[in-house]
Design a protein around this nucleic acid. Structure first.
Length: 431
RNA sequence: UCCCCGGUAGCUCAGUUGGCAGAGCAGCCGGCUGUUAACCGGCGGGCCGGAGGUUCGAGUCCUCCCCGGGGAGCCA
């Protein structure tokens, strides 16, 4: 008999099936014993009565939490069963019986303890749906770009050039040369873009910032895209389409997981209804000031300012055209106002923070040299990047999306550390 | 780096004005024919984060250190 996954059980009502998984809880009422089994796709209750053979009846009482097992039984719908379906068990076979109690109980635990046991915590009731939602987010991003003719490509993780200054880089010794872990694939993606036209990549990036908040990870995943002949306005439309596609896709494919997390899918769908709000930096400053948050023109947004914007709109909002001096050297100045650049940050609703940063890029060598100078950056390490403006330079734009922040928003998580299997935070390098 | 909170049983926590170290859960033993983080009875379980100090006496008060959590700045 071949294995059936828990999520497919409704299609097998009345049939005997084999479930292979792990025991996550059990209950007994003497002569009726319940074994709750998970297999990665869901949770199902097996009902064991004395009608099963005596070894099976005994196992239903004695197996400890997180025993792995095979369970044969007949599927039936029953309103008393969690999830609506259960298995009338004929036989249980233990695959591995733990010799000591599982560290993670079914009661509450502290954050420190759970993070110390992340490799085991991820098996638990809320963590599984989160990781399944993450899978769908990444899958939807790939699907979106593929449908639009973007070419999936890759960038180096070990780099010799800093993208945005060296203070937040992890440095390493590359056979005697200084090297860094990449904090963004953007510069390389611009090169690839001139070869392939429309490109994207998804991968880990690293920031050695001593950030200690619910929105920051030291190692996080970015989805970055770059398109030739795309201007600022087109860039915003592309980002909006992507975010809407991802949310709608997750709401459709992971409805059960969202429900398990008590996340309101209707609210998510409302939030991404077109169009997203768009305001300029200048408007944003006035709006934030109007909400009583102390901020001056020329300041970057703090957490309080972001939350104010988030509350004001209740849906994603693009903040466009930041002052040049707040943004990195590669962003193109607005031809109608060289004090600002053609960029935008996308602020998520519900206080989940900035989920995308993007811009139209500088496309002439002269401007690029000027802006490197403005930021007191050396020209030499950017030689190859300047080359891109020497041969067939075109207007082009791109952006980077923070995968974990999007997962945290969609799943409604209180902290970003649960949005990735193994979070690297300021205090955690293990497990 | 700065500000705030915490560290007591495997886990979550309580511990009064300084006066014998506690509960729930987990574990083990027993009971229960539909449980829903099941329930009921019993049993075992402690370097009170570390070092110093005050005191007749410190889990409790003081100093320093270590570790964790929340927030800020910076960012996606």
């Amino acid at each position: 008999m071949s294995q059936v996954y828990v999520e497919d059980l409704p299609q097998h009502v009345g049939n005997e099936v084999l479930i292979q998984g792990w025991l996550w809880n059990k209950r007994s009422s003497g002569k009726v014993r319940f074994v709750l089994v998970r297999d990665g796709t869901g949770w199902v209750q097996g009902v064991v009565t004395p009608d099963a053979d005596s070894a099976t009846f005994e196992l239903a009482e004695s197996l400890p939490q997180e025993s792995s097992l095979r369970m044969w039984g007949t599927v039936r719908a029953d309103p008393r069963a969690p999830g609506g379906h259960e298995l009338l068990v004929r036989k249980i076979e233990a695959v591995h019986i733990p010799q000591q109690p599982f560290p993670i109980g079914l009661k509450e635990h502290g954050v420190g303890f759970l993070m110390d046991h992340r490799h085991l915590w991820m098996r638990m009731r809320k963590q599984v749906p989160i990781l399944r939602i993450r899978d769908s987010v990444l899958w939807a991003i790939r699907e979106f770009f593929h449908q639009r003719g973007f070419v999936a490509t890759e960038v180096p993780i070990i780099v010799g050039t800093a993208v945005e200054g060296t203070t937040t880089l992890f440095s390493l010794d590359y056979f005697g040369q200084p090297a860094y872990l990449s904090q963004s694939g953007q510069l390389y993606l611009e090169a690839t873009c001139a070869a392939l036209g429309k490109v994207y990549w998804i991968g880990p990036v690293f920031r050695a910032e001593k950030s200690k908040t619910r929105k920051h990870l030291i190692e996080f995943w970015m989805a970055e895209a770059e398109q030739a002949f795309l201007d600022h306005q087109g860039n915003l439309q592309l980002q909006e389409d992507l975010v809407r596609y991802v949310v709608e896709s997750v709401v459709r494919c992971r409805a059960r997981e969202l429900e398990e997390l008590e996340r309101d899918a209707t609210k998510l769908r409302e939030e991404v209804r077109p169009p997203f709000a768009r305001i300029t930096y200048d408007e944003a400053i006035r709006l934030i000031q109007g909400r009583g948050v102390p901020i001056h023109h020329g300041d970057d947004f703090g957490a309080e300012a972001e939350d104010a914007l988030s509350q004001e709109f209740g849906r994603p909002v693009f903040v466009e055209r930041f002052p040049r001096k707040l943004k990195p050297f590669y962003m193109k100045k607005d031809p109608t106002n060289p004090q600002v650049v053609l960029c935008a940050d996308l602020i998520a609703p519900e206080g989940y923070g900035e989920i995308i940063g993007g811009s139209q890029r500088v496309d002439t060598e002269q401007e690029l040299l000027e802006q490197l100078g403005e930021d007191n950056l050396p020209v030499e390490p950017y030689g190859w990047y300047l080359d891109l403006r020497k041969w067939g330079s075109v207007p082009h734009s791109g952006f980077g999306l923070g995968v974990e922040r999007v997962v945290a928003w969609i799943a409604g998580l209180p902290h970003i550390r649960e949005a990735i299997p193994f979070a690297r935070t300021l205090t955690r390098l293990y497990p």
